[in-house]
Design a binder for these strands. Structure first.
Lengths: 230, 230
DNA sequence: GACTTTATACCTACGCTGTAGATCTCGACA
DNA sequence: TGTCGAGATCTACAGCGTAGGTATAAAGTC
């Protein structure tokens, strides 16, 4: 019960000014780390500059010494997630290498599902995503694919990845996956008048994300493979 | 210059209570229509209950007689967009019919690009999306595709659609499309150290969304077609 | 050592947000 | 005519992002 504080007081009881040398100082990385932890726990829409500051036991305005604004924090979170993509193996068939990048990307997003939309739903201004991008094109170019076509293929594949991962992290339309898990009033697909829907309804009700991902990835990569010369 | 009002006053100068018979009354549809118009003009992140009310010349709290909360408004916008998908032709090859649904979906989203994320980035609790869904599966089932596989194909295709449209409406990672258009500090892909990137950089700089969409759609639908029996 | 500069922390305050709760006023039904 | 309830307004609150100001100690300069 020791000392009692007004509960809203940050921490070092109002000591102002530059912190003395020994003390743990703030930094952009610490801010973003705290923000990410908060997102993991409470969700993207629940974070606020004030809560981040509270977690760091610091005044909210102090954050602005290390971060431009809230948007900058979200950018930082996105960078952190992208940095979590493992470097893919440089050997193997082109197909295997592309699968490696795709799976690495997926794994990085699923490591922080609630934060994933920072990557999937924003323009990323950072260069953190360039390495995986390069790793994804390289196999195509190595296989003799003309650059222009490689870009087409890349965009198609990225489209699939983004859309599919959005569904996995429940940030996207999903029709019937996981009843009761979705927000609010998830109605039970009364479908009725639409015969083709009643035919597939039972299969819509289940969704093994991993299997679904692999199915689609195979579809897309096979299609891309077929456009390669030779 | 007639009558001057404090500018923040809604409209009928504070008349309280149930509106007299002749006057135009509020309704859920009117609220959502106004909200959609506002999103079209100012963007999703700029709308607020207060601005919607102002546009309707009504007190902010009046909206709550017709709408549960702000989230409900966004749901309504999503429904409105989905309702804009034209009914696809019921004849033609399976391929043509699926293309029809996909293009209709795209057209409906591009009709309100700034509102599109309400559809693309939320779980939709409404049945407004069921008709297009049914229209998309029907060709597969008609072609003898087993229901389970049809669902896999559907999910893969939807993933591609969502991801690609997110990029088109600039709500998603896009690497280098349309320089200067993107938010804030769109850096010029200094890439440098990554040779495979410098090889494709010029092609990353241009992006014809329509062509890109058709390329990917062809890729995906061809792949799906190949899994059909016969 | 003394003086200045600079980085970093805190504090106050503003305008905006979503919305709970109370109040008023009319049309509709008894 | 009396009562009721739907639908509008008004007031108010807690929370948000952040502009602007102030204090303090470290680092740089002589």
């Amino acid at each position: 019960m020791g000392h009692t504080e007004p509960v809203t007081t940050p921490a070092p009881k109002g000591r102002r000014g530059r912190p003395p040398r020994g003390s743990a100082t703030l930094s952009r990385d610490r801010v973003i780390e705290a923000a990410l932890a908060l997102v993991d726990e409470e969700g993207l829409d629940q974070i606020s500059m004030r809560k981040i500051a509270q977690r760091l036991r610091v005044d909210p305005m102090s954050l602005y010494n290390h971060v431009a604004d809230k948007d900058d924090v979200l950018d930082g979170i996105a960078e952190a997630l992208l940095a979590g993509i493992p470097a893919p193996p440089a050997d193997g068939t082109p197909r295997e290498r592309m699968e490696g990048v795709a799976r690495g990307f997926r794994a990085a997003m699923l490591a922080h599902p609630r934060a994933a939309p920072t990557v999937l739903t924003r323009q990323i201004g950072s260069s953190a995503g360039l390495a995986p991008l390069a790793a994804a094109v390289a196999p195509l170019l190595d296989a003799g694919c003309p650059p222009e076509q490689a870009v087409h293929a890349l965009r198609a594949a990225l489209g699939f990845l983004v859309g599919t991962l959005m569904r996995e992290v429940e940030a996207s339309p999903s029709f019937g996956t996981d009843p009761a898990a979705g927000g609010r009033r998830r109605r039970t697909l009364e479908a009725a008048a639409l015969p083709s829907l009643t035919a597939i309804a039972p299969h819509l009700a289940v969704c093994d994300h991993e299997a679904e991902f692999e199915y689609g990835l195979d579809l897309v990569l096979t299609a891309i493979e077929r456009t390669l010369p030779g």
